[in-house]
């Protein structure tokens, strides 16, 4: 007998996966920046940390509690700050809490891995060391990759798995869009740098921030900003491009609703987002403004997130409670 998945469990799986992906992305962004510092002229160094805060979307919280976007402050805020719900430490704790709620649903390998990461992290944050950060970020990234791999190989690819994958690609699309937006905006005005070694370094850094460097090279060979944007938005095969993420989200959602009689609002909204990507091309995007394009994309992505919540985690049940109690009332009246 097949028992459907509890809404709460589906929600935990979705968020568990989002949090792991978020932690991994933040680690990658910071790690790339640390590397960048080695190649970058001193005088512009200071400008390179604030974009990371902007990318996280938490600049308000940051400037409320920190005076300036220095390397130390940004690293602390994005990595170890427990008051920042999107810091690496907070994300991994939240991932593990969610995993605990569904440990009877996920494989013991997945749970033990997240628990191990959590225990390790506790050790690290107790020592409060900011040195050896390279090793630390590498570990966080690897932890994320290992989690995805364990999910792939040790969990049945049924409803729960699809909710987790949906969470992952939603988060990934959001992060790719944000880093592209912030970096593109930062980099473009530096007209004097065009075609200089710095230009290549900076655009290269953006590609590395999305693990896209080698795959980009294979397709476009030379680094050119428009191609970078094209690759990160429209590439059909790169797993972090917006296009790829949205396609994957569509596949998972299709599985989830396969035996639904009615179309859910989540499907409807995701389809709208899909159309935006499908009908677009890079020339059009650049002409109309990349920032504007990404704004529209993210606005719609957020709506999809909201509707996933309404379709599967909460509203539907509330609605059904209402309609069922109405049935109850009318039947007693008869």
């Amino acid at each position: 007998m097949v028992v459907n998945m509890l809404s709460r469990v589906a929600e935990s799986l979705y968020w568990l996966s989002r949090y792991v992906e978020r932690a991994e992305n933040v680690a990658r962004f910071i790690h790339v920046n640390l590397h960048l510092m080695l190649d970058y002229p001193e005088e512009v160094l200071a400008r390179q940390w604030e974009p990371l805060v902007t990318t996280s979307g938490d600049e308000k919280d940051f400037f409320n509690r920190y005076d300036a976007a220095t390397e130390d402050n940004v690293i602390r805020f994005l990595t170890f700050d427990k008051e920042n719900p999107n810091s690496i430490v907070s994300c991994l704790n939240a991932a593990r809490e969610n995993a605990r709620m569904v440990r009877d649903t996920i494989s013991s390998e997945m749970w033990e891995h997240l628990n191990h990461v959590y225990l390790d992290l506790k050790k690290h944050s107790r020592q409060k060391k900011i040195d050896d950060l390279h090793g630390f970020y590498t570990n966080v990234k690897n932890a994320g990759h290992l989690f995805v791999g364990l999910m792939e190989t040790t969990m049945s690819h049924s409803e729960g798995w699809h909710f987790a994958r949906l969470g992952r690609v939603m988060e990934r699309a959001d992060k790719t869009a944000r880093i592209l937006d912030v970096r593109y905006f930062m980099l473009l005005p530096a007209v004097e740098d065009v075609d200089t070694p710095f230009d290549a370094i900076l655009w290269g850094a953006l590609l590395k921030s999305t693990s896209a460097f080698e795959m980009y090279r294979k397709r476009f060979h030379r680094i050119y900003h428009k191609n970078v944007a094209d690759f990160l938005i429209f590439d059909d095969y790169f797993p972090r491009s917006l296009n790829y993420c949205i396609n994957t989200a569509k596949k998972s959602l299709k599985f989830i609703v396969s035996d639904f009689s009615e179309k859910t609002s989540a499907e409807y909204e995701l389809n709208k987002l899909y159309e935006i990507i499908k009908d677009g091309n890079i020339d059009q995007v650049v002409n109309n403004g990349l920032h504007e394009f990404i704004d529209i994309f993210q606005f719609n992505l957020n709506i999809v997130g909201r509707e996933v919540h309404n379709s599967f985690f909460s509203m539907k049940n509330e609605k059904m409670v209402e309609s069922m109690s109405q049935v109850q009332v009318s039947s007693t009246n008869e």
Binding site: N4, L6, R8, D104, I256, N317, V321, M324
Partner: peptide, 22 residues
């Protein structure tokens, strides 16, 4: 299934759990 109280609701004196499909 491992359920919490908030996953369950009583309708027509029957206990129901809230799933993604109703």
């Amino acid at each position: 299934q491992l359920v919490e109280g908030r996953d369950l609701v009583v309708l027509n004196d029957t206990v129901k759990m809230k799933t993604t499909k109703g």
